[in-house]
Design a protein around this nucleic acid. Structure first.
Length: 566
RNA sequence: UGGGGUGUCGCCAAGCGGUAAGGCACGGGUCUUUGGAACCCGCAUUCGGAGGUUCGAAUCCUCCCACCCCAGCCA
């Protein structure tokens, strides 16, 4: 039990791998692969697959390949192959030498197709796309055989060669596997293996004008790379008989395909189609918008790779469709960031406080702990002076029952500073809005404790007005208002968009130490949450993204009060 | 009377014939110079339903029900 912590949670795929190792099915080898199509950005759902494939390989002393499934040149771009590599690396995984492209196998794939033709297991079909669909039948009605199904091997060979040579226009002919038009599994009704596509490929250029389809390509790619466990998502379960059929026909090395349920998360969407729509329709600022569930978005938001990996471990793995509560993801970031990230004080909605009995020009440098969870992170100096800012929410003229922060006549502690007591409230004549507080400070309480042992109930964060840096802070909430966008009211998922998913705060006041923050670094703003410096920052004005709030007991109490009073 | 899957706490998820792990959420408490963190306690007499086999069933059998996926020359 000593290495209990190192033991991953059991799941059915690990069970299969362990069994295979035990029986020597693959000679003790474990080779997995992550096979993205470079037609979009990776998201948290991909992270689940990446962690699974790379994780299992690492755990059992195997290897995991990164293979781009780039058989559709009309959708794929180098931009995506770059972002995918960057994201996988950032997550902390290393494919070493094992970077592959399905397009590297085009020549071998072609040879395999020729072999199948020679066996009489594949044929060139001249039916139009519409006719192929019609001949395929429906879910309940069997299909009909193509009139071209029984062409001679010679004719098929000739036609297929001429397809490759570019003699025919797009869509004129396809190569099909000869399986069973009456199969209950539609994938087996003579699936298309090759289509004619006079398109420029991002790697092979104009060398090819015929491109293989997924089912034919994937199993052979796995075979070539001597994959042992080919792990994919549930929707490919129906394709497994086809995966097996091709490899059996070809009599080549034959990996095992295993399917698991893809990840869904509450309050967001995960399908590539929907994510693209959010980007192109401008509902978010791009693929890396911090509200997006993309890896790049989460990185910009301030998530650590560790927190994402932890999440992927803790959600488990099974074959049942499920939607994980986003609260679990938030828990994982908080848990990680709490341990690793330095604290800072930042006032998001400033309220001016004048310490009436504090010397006019005095400035003190107070010592603050960088991370109470980790003393090795040391301390820093925070300037303190007569005029400060505190959070507007930390003062109430008419404090409710359980509110124990500042109000007129009350004493609270300023973190690492002094006890202060509110003695006056300045308001705007017209609006009645509180514009400034007058407080006294107790010189005996420097550092935050009193010699007489007097207790205060609240500790507030603050910032010295004269030393503060002005910043922009972007507060994020769930992108959607409902747990399952588009599914609850039966409409368009975009109708469920949260109009307050981004709230920009300007004129925030942050402590001077934050002037040294580097883009991408994360801080805990005490009592508020985790914040990450955004690339939009300029030297004169930092911009912070809120990664996650801290758990907020007071907010919960307040919400409860509202509920019971209404 | 097409095929393939899945049903264990509000959300995930272990469990593989011996009498329901764990996490999140939620509720209560201790502690606290973050109403943070940490720590403690509580939270399925019951496993989609109904029968059956067995000394014993979430686990085996039968039937039923619900939900998901498949009719791209996408992956």
């Amino acid at each position: 039990m000593a290495n209990q912590e190192l033991t991953q949670a059991p799941n059915f795929i690990r069970a299969i791998v362990e069994e295979d190792i035990k029986t020597g099915k693959w000679g003790g080898r474990v080779v997995t692969r992550f096979p993205p199509e470079p037609n979009g950005y990776l998201h948290i759902g991909h992270a689940k697959s990446i962690c699974l494939n790379f994780g299992i390989a690492a755990e059992y002393g195997g290897t995991c390949h990164l293979r781009f499934d780039d058989t559709n040149p009309t959708k794929e771009e180098v931009e995506y192959v770059q972002s995918i590599q960057e994201d996988v690396k950032w997550l902390g995984f290393d494919w070493g030498e094992h970077l592959y492209y399905a397009s590297d196998y085009f020549e071998q794939l072609y040879d395999c197709a020729v072999r199948l033709i020679k066996k009489g297991s594949a044929y060139v079909c001249d039916l139009s796309p519409e006719e192929i669909r019609e001949y395929r039948g429906t879910l309940t009605k069997p299909g009909r055989e193509s009139p071209y199904r029984n062409r001679s091997v010679e004719e098929n060979l000739d036609l297929f060669a001429r397809m490759r040579a570019g003699e025919f226009p797009d869509g004129a002919r396809v190569l099909r596997a000869k399986i069973d038009m009456a199969s209950g599994n539609i994938n087996l009704r003579d699936p298309v293996m090759y289509r004619i596509l006079h398109a420029h490929h991002h790697r092979t250029g104009d060398k090819w004008c015929i491109y293989p389809l997924y089912d034919f390509t994937h199993c052979i790619s796995d075979s070539i790379e001597r994959i042992t466990h080919s792990i994919c998502t549930l929707e490919f379960e129906d394709h497994r008989p086809l995966y097996d059929w091709f490899l059996d026909e070809l009599q080549v090395y034959h990996p095992q395909q295993i399917e698991f349920a893809r990840l869904n998360l509450t309050y967001t969407v995960m399908s590539k189609r929907k994510l693209v729509a959010l980007v192109v329709e401008g509902h978010v600022r791009g693929w890396d918008d911090p509200r997006m569930p993309t890896i790049s978005g989460m990185r910009r938001r301030g998530f650590s790779p560790q927190s994402i990996r932890k999440f992927c471990e803790v959600i488990g793995l099974a074959k049942r469709n499920s939607t994980v509560d986003v609260a679990l993801l938030e828990h994982c970031v908080r848990e990680d960031l709490n341990r690793c990230v330095p604290r800072a004080m930042a006032v998001l909605r400033p309220l001016r406080v004048v310490l009436v009995n504090y010397p006019e020009d005095q400035v003190e440098q107070l010592e603050a702990v960088n991370n109470p969870e980790d003393p090795s992170m040391g301390t820093r100096r925070v300037p303190f002076s007569k005029v400060l800012y505190i959070e507007r929410d930390d003062f109430r003229e008419d404090p409710p029952k359980q509110f124990y922060r500042l109000s007129l006549g009350r004493e609270v502690r300023l973190r690492y500073g002094y006890y202060i007591t509110c003695v006056g409230v300045v308001k705007d004549e017209h609006s009645g809005e509180v514009t400034e507080l007058h407080c006294t400070y107790d010189p005996e309480t420097r550092g935050g404790s009193s010699p007489d042992g007097r207790k205060v109930k609240a500790t507030l964060h603050w910032v010295s007005a004269a030393h503060a840096i002005e910043a922009e802070v972007r507060l994020y909430e769930h992108l959607f208002l409902v747990p399952n966008p588009g599914e609850e009211r039966g409409g368009d998922f975009k109708e469920d968009l949260n109009p307050k998913s981004l709230v920009v705060l300007d004129g925030c006041m942050v402590e001077p130490a934050l002037g040294d923050a580097r883009v991408g670094s994360v801080y805990q703003f005490e009592r508020q949450g985790y914040f990450c410096l955004d690339p939009d920052s300029s030297p004169s004005k930092p911009v912070f993204n809120r990664t996650a709030t801290l758990r907020d007991t007071w907010a919960k109490i307040e919400k409860g009060m509202q509920r019971s009073s209404s």
